[in-house]
Simulated scan of single mutants.
Amino acid sequence: MDTTPPPSRPATLTAPRLVERLIQGQATSDGAGVRLTRLLTQDLQRRLDPFLMLDLFGTENPGDYIGGFPDHPHRGFETITYMLQGRMRHRDSAGNEGLLVPGSVQWMTAGRGVIHSEMPEQQEGAMEGFQLWLNLPGRDKMREPWYRDIATAEVPEWQGEGVTARVIAGATHGVQGAVQRDATEPLYLDLHLAPGAVFTQPLPAHHNAFVVVYRGELNVAETLVRTRRMAILANTPGSDGVLLRAGEAGARAILVAGQPLKEPIAQYGPFVMNTQQEIFDAVNDFRAGRLA
């Protein structure tokens, strides 16, 4: 007798969010010439608080990624690197080291400061993934750094009708994610949808949220979102969540949401603080070798 539980049904929403704006992203490069698409740019930081940046890197050309991201500093926020394809080795000034492989996550809280590198551990084949920057509240910006490497098998999953949700942070349909944060309450889901499949996610109306499609097409409420596009979701009073429906070829997408901090943002490259004086202090500490 088959004792496998039937797939869960999506939650019912009464007022799903509409798409406020579609973002195509900016082609750019970072590190030692790694080519990527920057979807969440600095001009969107206030609108998508507490999220500061989102990069999508994806190529089969080793020349676009082989230089990697040599030693560089961070202070004042968290980075979440999620690998879809390829292998990336990371090391930092505190002696931490790990290997990112398809489906794995590296969650780093820079806190008062680290110097780290992220270098490809391959010379051919596809390299693809996301890096998201999540702000820290002012009270936590100078905390001790923290790291967690989350193996592919350690990312919790929820199964629905034609839907698999990998729960990197937050929770969906009773499944708790790999990481939780009290101040920003991030939700980070990697969604795999069969053709025509529907996924719903309850969300507080005041949380900022966006969807990025990286395979196929999605209908978000009644708006079509194509591959490599980001849909910013409207914070409509009374809205109760997100409704997604995959196109004819199915879809893969990330859904990200969080509680805005509503704090001042002062940024200078890899340092994100609340005041310009704190930025000056970060630069001076880096120059004096106090981040290592």
Rank of each mutant, 00 (worst) to 15 (best):
T3Y: 12
P7M: 07
S8R: 12
P10R: 07
T12M: 04
L13A: 09
L13W: 06
V19R: 02
E20S: 13
E20R: 14
R21H: 13
R21L: 13
R21W: 08
Q24H: 14
G25I: 09
A27K: 15
S29I: 03
S29T: 15
D30F: 04
G31F: 04
V34F: 11
T37A: 05
L39Q: 06
T41H: 12
Q42L: 14
L44I: 12
R47C: 01
D49A: 11
F51P: 00
F57M: 14
F57H: 07
E60L: 08
Y65A: 06
I66H: 10
G68S: 11
P70K: 09
H72S: 13
P73Q: 07
R75H: 00
E78F: 01
T79I: 01
Q85V: 07
G86I: 09
R89V: 04
R91T: 07
D92C: 12
S93A: 05
E97K: 03
L100H: 01
V101Y: 08
G103E: 11
S104W: 06
Q106L: 09
W107L: 05
I115G: 05
H116E: 04
S117E: 15
E118P: 02
Q122Y: 05
G125L: 15
Q131R: 05
Q131A: 07
L134G: 00
L136S: 05
D140L: 13
M142H: 08
P145L: 06
R148N: 11
D149C: 03
A151V: 11
T152Q: 14
E154W: 01
P156G: 03
E157D: 08
E157I: 14
W158G: 01
W158H: 13
G162F: 09
A165S: 12
R166E: 07
R166S: 13
V167W: 05
A169G: 14
A169D: 00
T172P: 03
A178I: 09
A183W: 00
T184N: 12
T184E: 15
L187W: 04
L187Q: 06
D190L: 13
L191P: 10
L191H: 08
L191E: 08
L193F: 04
A194H: 02
P195N: 07
A205C: 03
H206F: 11
N208V: 12
A209H: 03
F210K: 01
V212N: 02
Y214T: 07
R215S: 10
G216Y: 05
E217W: 00
N219P: 02
E222G: 02
V225Y: 04
V225K: 03
T227M: 09
R229V: 06
M230A: 08
A231P: 04
N235G: 10
N235K: 15
N235M: 11
T236M: 11
S239K: 09
D240P: 10
V242E: 00
R252A: 15
L255K: 11
A266H: 10
Q267K: 13
Q276N: 10
E278A: 13
F280D: 06
F280E: 08
D281M: 09
V283Q: 04
V283Y: 03
A288I: 03
L291S: 00
